[in-house]
Design a protein around this nucleic acid. Structure first.
Lengths: 198, 198
DNA sequence: CATCCCTTATGATTTGGGTCATAAAATGCT
DNA sequence: AGCATTTTATGACCCAAATCATAAGGGATG
């Protein structure tokens, strides 16, 4: 989201993490601004029974974990590498200096937060009050449109496992598998060689 | 969130709405920045079966409905007055001029978005994967801490109806009533004269 | 103050998604 | 190639929350 040169100019370092590594944990104090250079990071929580909930999945170019920087609260979730990844990290103070010196960068941060709040709003109403099939479709459509920047007419290959869809929607794997089957029967998506297309 | 004088200086008008009035609807194009002068506004959705989901409740001093201004998307929810209310409204363009001319105002907007994103994150994981009692307690604690700015030791009177709690957590009134009863038995909150305290 | 509607309340019944068990196919690792 | 792990898959059963019904208390309004 923020120009790489600008990040480096303000002293950003680069961190290399392996698949499965934890960048920060729920409850930690936020000290750095992070932006992905390569790879994928997810933010998640585990409830009392150990069930995972994925807040979001971030890919190349995305920044994540900023809200706590602005409001002085601990992280509400963990950040875990889904694949090997490289991440820019810049100290909180430098980050704020960067924002004040670059109004456009600040605006793009604001736009980014607005974007994510928008997504959370849409998913919140889905998760709370819709049937599984509806939730799953909405999630897939969000990924198709906002993550992959595709048009409704394009054919989109869902790059999420059934388990990940379950963890993103708060459902169980079995329910996701059955719902996806049912959605295929209704012609709302296609399963080819176990892969889901929409 | 934004100084009233500043808003007026950039040409903000004032809108008077009555309890139950709709300020904007899901799908509408965002043209104004809104901030509450007095009264309460809720943002909500209705699912296919007509069940309400309350995204948030906003009170004096809060602004709301900005994300769509930044990302050029239609409103993801409706804005409805819970009580009679007065609201500042400032045209999108004037609002952006205000932000660029006042970096501190821009920062406070960013902080506000961060705050709301934080809340949505916490509630998302709650709603998706916890039992009713847990969800309700988390919501009450959020209102106590973030809306009323009280300390854990203070006695907080929950100013939400059982129905509102249901619509904020995605549960049914009956379930909320029964859960609150059960929470009282466990000593986690107090019911006095039908009012809930925590 | 009579009426209406909202809120709180409680019991009975239903049901959809969770849970458990089991397994085959695919993928990753050494 | 061989083994472990993950992913997809399906059937049987269960249970908590939704649904349905019904009602009493409280607040607002003309």
């Amino acid at each position: 989201m923020i120009d790489e040169n600008l990040l480096q100019q303000f002293g950003a370092g680069s961190i290399t993490i392996k698949k499965g590594d934890i960048l920060f944990e729920e409850g930690d104090t936020a000290k750095y601004f992070y932006q992905i250079k390569s790879g994928e990071i997810k933010m998640n929580n585990f409830n009392d029974e150990g069930k995972e909930f994925i807040q979001s999945i971030f890919t190349k170019g995305n920044c994540f974990g900023e809200p706590p920087l602005f409001i002085n609260k601990p992280y509400p979730a963990n950040a875990v590498a889904i694949t090997d990844a490289e991440v820019y990290a810049i100290a909180k103070e430098s980050f704020f200096r960067l924002l004040f010196a670059n109004p456009e960068a600040h605006l793009s941060m604001t736009v980014n937060l607005a974007q994510r709040l928008y997504f959370k709003s849409v998913m919140a109403s889905e998760i709370s009050s819709q049937e599984p099939e509806h939730r799953i479709l909405k999630l897939i459509d969000y990924f198709k449109e906002s993550v992959s920047k595709l048009q409704p007419a394009d054919k989109y290959k869902v790059d999420l496992t059934r388990q990940q869809i379950a963890d993103l929607t708060g459902l169980r794997v079995e329910t996701v598998i059955r719902s996806i089957k049912s959605l295929e029967k209704k012609g709302l998506l296609i399963i080819e060689d176990r892969k889901v297309y929409r």
